[in-house]
Design a protein around this nucleic acid. Sequence first.
DNA 1: ACCCAGGGTGACG
DNA 2: CGTCACCATGGG
Length: 292
Amino acid sequence: MNISFENNKVIFSGVNCFDLEKSCSCGQAFRWRPFSGGQLGVVRGEPALLRQEGGFITVEGASPASAAMWAHYLDLGRDYAAIESAVMNDPRLAVCFPEAHGIRVFNQEPFEALISFIISQNNNIKRISGIVERLCALCGEPIEFMGERLFAFPAPERIAALSAGELTSIGTGYRAPFIKEAAERVAAGYELEPLRSMELDEARRELLSFNGVGPKVADCVLLFSLQHSSAFPIDVWIDRAMKAMFFEGNKAKKAELYEAVSSLGEYSGLIQQYIFQYARTIGRDGLKAGRI
DNA sequence: ACCCAGGGTGACG
DNA sequence: CGTCACCATGGG
């Protein structure tokens, strides 16, 4: 991987195993939208239009000073070729390809991930994206970019200051108090960043202390923002797919699923995202019909 | 009308 | 430890 700069552009070259569109729409992040042949979004308050041409990833709107931030967000330092290769050589997991090829697990800002995945519970990706976007429009910092009016993800204080009525007006439903409480707690000084260097179980326990955060949401936050590559969120799709892939389509308890996860190694969280992409692509009927 | 969605909580055994 | 109703909301 190499970095070069043009006017208002950062260009990463020699990037393999990266499908930009797939990675932006796979349900790990909710703020990317197709725009002019690329993906338009805001990360840590910085707007960008991402483009991909083969092994070139272009970040339009980024300065050299933010190149490291974007490289980290896009997880460009990780050897995905080695991971994909290992997965394809595992007969239990090879079925996930080619659907999962090119999925990268981004490193999002932790507070954004926490709020986004509190919103995600008992919800679907399209509607989650809508709610998150309306939340940003409601109290995020406006940003003019590419002739579009974008919004930064709101600071904790801004969300904490919202009324219950404002929060429900954007469609958060019964999750509104969870969102407000979490924002209040972070605004009051709770630090998410230290969870990055904690042991997985300890970091989990911390997140479970948030009202509205259970095992699945906690692992999403850990995997998608705090670099816990073995955090393994189990949602309805992963549950279905793992039963099909590891239990011959039979029932399995949660503990049995986690037992299977433990055999997947240090990057089980990334593998989880491959499984998720595969399951969602072929659908419920596809999982039942086999190809497993 | 019913079922589903990147689930969690609280009550009750 | 397990099960289960319930929680808003919008799309299929």
